[in-house]
Amino acid sequence: MKEDTGKKILFALGVLFILVFCLVPFIWMLIISFNERADFIVNIGSQLTTKNYIDILRLDNLHFLDYLRNSIIIAGAAALLSGFIGALAAYAVSRISFPGKILLVFAVLSMSMFPQISIVGYLYKFMAALGWINTYQALILPYVSWSLPLALWIMMSYFSQIPYELDKAAQIDGASKLQTLTKIIFPITLPGFLSTILLLLMFAFNEFLFALMLTIDYRTRTVPVGIALFQGLHGELPWGYIMAAAVISCIPVIAIALVFQKHIIQGLTRGAVKQ
């Protein structure tokens, strides 16, 4: 009985801790974004306002909508491509035995541990040689490659849960491997595939270093780079604008996190835990 009470109190404290820990900085961002001045707390007379939001959505010279469009196109294209390519490879790895398979998987997975900086310098030269600096493909192609280890890893764990008998049955009916994948296996793993795509989307949407190096201006710059490079006219950072932009860029990812919480956790941990 005594232990139960002790445990309950600890548990309640734990819940409170998680809420405060996760939400306070986040709520602080919201508050600043709706204030006239970032120093409102020591500067009485500052008023609540939606001006920051209206400005970043209206003022063309802030380019926030451009950044948002670029981010959506780049992250969307990268996530879809990476998801499909990863699924194809994962299917082969989980179904076909071929020489060098384990080596391939191990090599690909270990690539997710490379520091981005050891790639981005040469990538810049490579893209510059192709004349691709400040283009969408200069970001999409590296993003696809960079997120492929994650895509392969998660999709492999989904495929490995589907009984091999299904493939056998399809092949006896004369279906090729590709037909088996697209007509039978893929529809079954569709929920898993979608949660993989969501993770890949978040991944690409949040990426910073590649985007910082490989873009030059509003025509391809993504939201994180835009937010990081926001400059004030007179030295002081335009905190209201920055926070309003930050809030808007958080909306899609938070919506995904809250709604698909279960799928994201599953997707991330599928590979880590052998079931």
Partner: peptide, 14 residues
Amino acid sequence: RGISLIPWAIPSIV
């Protein structure tokens, strides 16, 4: 669980 994902889900730059 959803709330606890927020700090990780939002862009690191934010």
